[in-house]
């Protein structure tokens, strides 16, 4: 016998299906929110509370760097940057001065493929580079959609769900620190491992450096190593004339380095 479906039954069932259809994704959202990194970091606090009293700084000691490029590899692995593509959140440059004042600069595959250099009469040294997390970041200024922004503790981040991939920020960065992520097709850059540092860890490159050439810390904490170095040692930043006010400070930076 054919079952008759009353209008009442039909509406009730249809209503349930519609309600389930609406609620299911909302439920999914709730689950997502619970597991997001931000929630884990926040633990009920607001971002301004977390940022209070923090201003992150970075120190690169070029006298110590041995050009092993472990930082380059660790960075790529930590941050999901393809190893086989020529894009880098951090890289190591090598400067080889001949006796006659000629400078040969190279950074093959970001420093991962250094061949031993010939001995010369001039200076030879390595310079690790990474995002300077500028106080006046040109990349944030030019981003047409506000996808790249400065956090309250002074780190420049990219919202990869908002970035349109116009690459204006890549043009605007004087340091070549930005690139288009080959897989995500959005702008990408060093964040000083913000996802790690918010949990109290050090950036990946700092962790793996075998000689302590990279240091990371809170510039607002008078006792932190970076504050002590910035206060007591002779330091330089890259391209100070650009007015970007970098927060990555270099010890022993040679004048040929740009």
């Amino acid at each position: 016998m054919k079952k008759e479906v009353s209008r009442r039954d039909f509406l009730a069932t249809a209503g349930k299906i519609v309600a389930a259809g609406i609620l299911a994704p909302l439920g999914g959202l709730a689950v997502l929110q619970k597991t997001s990194v931000a929630q884990e970091v926040l633990k009920g606090k607001s971002w301004p509370e977390i940022w209070a009293g923090k201003e992150w700084g970075f120190v690169v000691d070029t006298e110590k760097c041995i050009g092993c490029a472990r930082c380059v590899k660790a960075c790529k692995l930590e941050n999901g940057v393809p190893l086989d593509k020529e894009v880098f959140r951090t890289w190591v440059e090598r400067y080889v001065e001949s006796g006659e004042g000629q400078v040969n600069i190279d950074s093959p595959n970001g420093g991962l493929d250094f061949e031993p250099a010939e001995k010369t009469d001039g200076k030879q040294f390595f310079v690790p580079k990474l995002c300077n997390q500028c106080e006046n970041p040109p990349c944030v200024q030019v981003c047409p959609v506000g996808a790249t922004y400065k956090t309250g503790d002074g780190v420049i981040l990219v919202d990869n769900k908002r970035c349109v991939g116009c690459r204006y920020c890549i043009q605007a960065c004087p340091y070549g620190a930005r690139f288009l992520h080959p897989e995500l097709k959005v702008a990408d850059k060093c964040t000083w491992c913000y996802h790690r540092t918010q949990k109290g860890m050090l950036p990946a490159c700092v962790t793996v450096c075998p000689v302590g050439a990279r240091k990371y810390g809170n510039l607002k904490d008078p006792n932190s190593e970076v504050t002590q170095i910035v206060k007591k040692q002779r330091i330089r930043v890259l391209k100070p004339d650009m007015g970007t006010e970098p927060k990555a400070y270099y010890i022993g930076l040679d004048e040929v380095v740009k």
């Binding site: 020529e86 894009v87 595959n109 970001g110 690139f179």
Partner: peptide
């Protein structure tokens, strides 16, 4: 020399 990210 160009910065590695400038190759593209």
């Amino acid at each position: 020399y160009v910065y590695p990210n400038e190759i593209e």
